[in-house]
Design a protein around this nucleic acid. Structure first.
Length: 310
DNA sequence: GGTTTTGCTCGTCAAACATC
DNA sequence: GATGTTTGACGAGCAAAACC
């Protein structure tokens, strides 16, 4: 069996096992309880509150064996296939119910060090994260500030300030993309088709803008290299596209942009999922302690109020 | 020491969902 | 309804553990 075949096999078996457990539980746990309790816990066991495709397939198989019930109602199918709410929603709902549960913020979580760094600056209008975890804060269109998350959140603060001599045109895009090029540098695209490049080796002489104190990497404004790093394409004005080649290039550019966005979205989604699972785990711990206390209390009360037999 | 297994992360796709 | 966002599913790759 190939490696991926194995994984698929394992995943399918896991789902089937999970479904078996489900079906066993169905007999012993009232639906209302099972629904409310499992809704929050299913993520940990890999279950979805909504059946997976495998489960749907199993439903279909069951239907095959029982020909009389072979047709699943369309709405029922829709219900089966519909997604459960996002982690953010679930966790925020959870946190509104339980005071101890932290909320998932719209921006980056504190564990990534955003808030301590950014809070010290002027209130940024936009925050971008690079592929290496650095943050770029753009404050009111006047300054670009770059910060490293760092383990302690504050230590890695690096300020790269770009002051505009004049007011930027309204709605101007200050940073278009942030990525890591093949040579290990980071490039941030700024107006005028220029590029802010981070040099990881400090041997490079600082250019007209740089942050070169201590171990801080240097930054330079350069004209963009002809060969853009992977996944980075400069924005083109849509009105100037005519030839099929240009259209193809535009399509490629859009695709790459979409892929890049989705890549980041997937990362963010996984981060949220981890946070969600952590939250559930901590909630389990709290509830276990609570449960233990209640049992102890019950025992104490039993001792007090139970009639003495001797 | 080489091979296989296991566990994890990542990028991508597709579909549901949200927003304008 | 067009566009953007979110997330489950899948496959690929890698590293460590387990096995021979």
């Amino acid at each position: 069996m190939s490696k991926c075949g194995r994984k698929k096999y394992i995943k399918t078996n896991l789902r089937q096992m999970t479904m078996e457990i489900d079906s066993q539980q169905d007999g012993s746990i009232p639906d209302s309880v099972a629904e409310s309790e499992s809704a929050h816990m299913q993520m940990q066991t890999g279950q979805n509150s909504i059946p997976t495709l495998a489960q749907v397939a199993t439903i279909a198989e069951t239907d095959e064996s029982a020909e009389s019930e072979s047709v699943i109602d369309f709405h029922k199918r829709r219900e089966i296939l519909s997604r459960r709410p996002s982690y953010r929603k679930i966790l925020n709902e959870l946190s509104s119910d339980v005071p101890g549960v932290p909320k998932i913020e719209e921006e980056k979580s504190e564990e990534e060090g955003t808030s301590p760094n950014i809070a010290a600056m002027a209130v940024p209008t936009s925050i971008y994260q690079t592929s290496t975890g650095q943050y770029i804060a753009i404050a009111q269109g006047e300054a670009i500030q770059i910060s490293n998350p760092g383990s302690d959140g504050v230590q890695g603060l690096q300020a790269l300030t770009m002051t505009n001599s004049g007011a930027p045109p309204p709605g101007a895009t200050i940073v278009q993309y942030a990525t890591q090029s093949a040579d290990g540098t980071q490039q941030f695209f700024v107006p005028g088709s220029q590029v802010v490049v981070q040099d990881e080796e400090t041997e490079l002489a600082p250019s007209h803008i740089s942050a070169t104190t201590g171990d801080m990497p240097t930054y330079q404004i350069r004209a963009p290299t002809t060969a853009l790093p992977q996944g980075v394409v400069m924005a083109a004005s849509p009105g100037s596209l005519h030839s099929p080649q240009q259209l193809a290039e535009e399509a490629t550019r859009k695709r790459e942009l979409r892929l890049m966005k989705n890549r980041e979205a997937a990362k963010e989604c996984r981060r949220r999922k981890k946070e969600y699972v952590k939250c559930l785990e901590s909630r389990v711990a709290v509830l276990e302690v609570q449960n233990k206390k209640l049992i102890e209390e019950l025992e104490t009360l039993k001792d007090i109020y139970s009639p003495k037999t001797d």
